[in-house]
């Protein structure tokens, strides 16, 4: 009897394995194959191309620029989101009237799809008759509408702002969950030892939230790095790739230009980059956690 136990277990996970295989691994394998092939505009592989698609990337100045932009965008959004989410989580952890309502409100933008969020922001930021411009003009802070999405600098500011706003709900909720697991005795003990707000934040809250911070940062980096809807809906990379990130550039190369080979090479590169990042990040943080325990 015990011998068939693993078999039953296998059968149970089989549907999941099949699904994950079909939905996750097959596309990865196909993309990898494409990246080493010449591919026609119908995304059919025609022949082996060796490293040609990867070599083409290195001489593609747009790719290098977009890669730098993607790193900048990811660091800015994840960094600011984390810094902003900590006080939000702390505030929501306090006991005040209307706390449930505040928590519910924070979750609303998270519930709407990113695409819808982005489209709404596109109109909020409209260069001629938007809410933001109208308000600023009525307050006489500006006398001409600002075309937020018209120049590289203001467009990046707008894209990053929207990126942060849609990332805050998930991040602050994860941090809130982390906070709730901190036993209140620890704060009482810290208070007895004479620790003020900052001291107990620094020596009790932050160290105990480290595991949650690690997970949210890792997930946010992966989400934000690959966030297609916001940059796509807001600017489509305009002007001249200056507001593209890698995923929007890949989409353009593949689906607007039919260049599936180089696009697949870029996708593989992202895959490897993020995989390497995840492994290094969890390795480093694990080491530090161990040191912390000692």
């Amino acid at each position: 009897m015990p011998r068939s136990e693993p078999l039953v277990g296998l059968l149970f996970i089989l549907p999941t394995v099949v699904l994950v295989g079909v939905i996750v691994f097959y596309p990865i394998v196909e993309t990898a194959l494409m990246s080493f092939s010449t591919v026609n505009s119908l995304a059919q592989r025609e022949g082996f191309a060796g490293l040609a698609n990867y070599e083409a990337l290195l001489s593609d100045t747009v790719f290098l620029r977009v890669l730098a932009q993607t790193v900048f965008w990811t660091v800015a959004v994840v960094g600011i989101t984390t810094v902003v989410s900590i006080p939000v989580a702390l505030a929501l952890n306090l006991n005040f009237r209307g706390r449930r309502l505040a928590r519910a409100l924070l979750i609303v933008p998270w519930a709407a799809s990113l695409m819808i969020n982005a489209i709404i922001w596109r109109w909020i930021l409209d260069g001629q008759h938007s809410i933001i411009n109208g308000t600023l003009m009525r307050l006489h802070l500006i006398d001409q509408p600002i075309i937020w999405l018209g120049s590289e600098q203001t467009a990046w500011a707008a894209i990053i702002l929207v990126g942060i706003l849609v990332s805050i709900p998930f991040t602050s909720f994860s941090l809130l969950a982390g906070l709730q697991s901190v036993p209140s005795e620890l704060y009482e003990a810290a208070m007895v030892d004479g620790a003020g707000f900052w001291a107990s934040f620094w020596h009790v809250t932050l160290p105990l939230m480290r595991p949650v911070l690690i997970v949210t940062t890792l997930l946010n980096v992966i989400y934000v790095f690959n966030s297609f809807p916001i940059p796509w809906v807001l600017t489509q990379g305009s002007p001249a790739y200056r507001t593209d990130i890698l995923v929007t550039y890949i989409y353009k190369r593949a689906f607007a230009e039919g260049q599936f080979g180089p696009a697949a090479a870029m996708a593989m590169l992202i895959f490897v980059l993020l995989l390497a990042f995840s492994l290094t990040f969890s390795h480093i943080t694990k080491e530090r956690a161990k040191v912390g325990i000692k």
């Binding site: 260069g127 001629q128 075309i147 999405l149 018209g150 467009a155 489509q236 002007p239």
Partner: peptide, 21 residues
């Protein structure tokens, strides 16, 4: 025209014309 045309899509410009702007 509007300054900084890179901030405008065809759909927005059509809306602007319809709105008399």
């Amino acid at each position: 025209s509007q300054p900084e045309p890179s901030g405008f899509t065809r759909e927005q410009v059509i809306e602007n014309f319809k709105a008399g702007q």
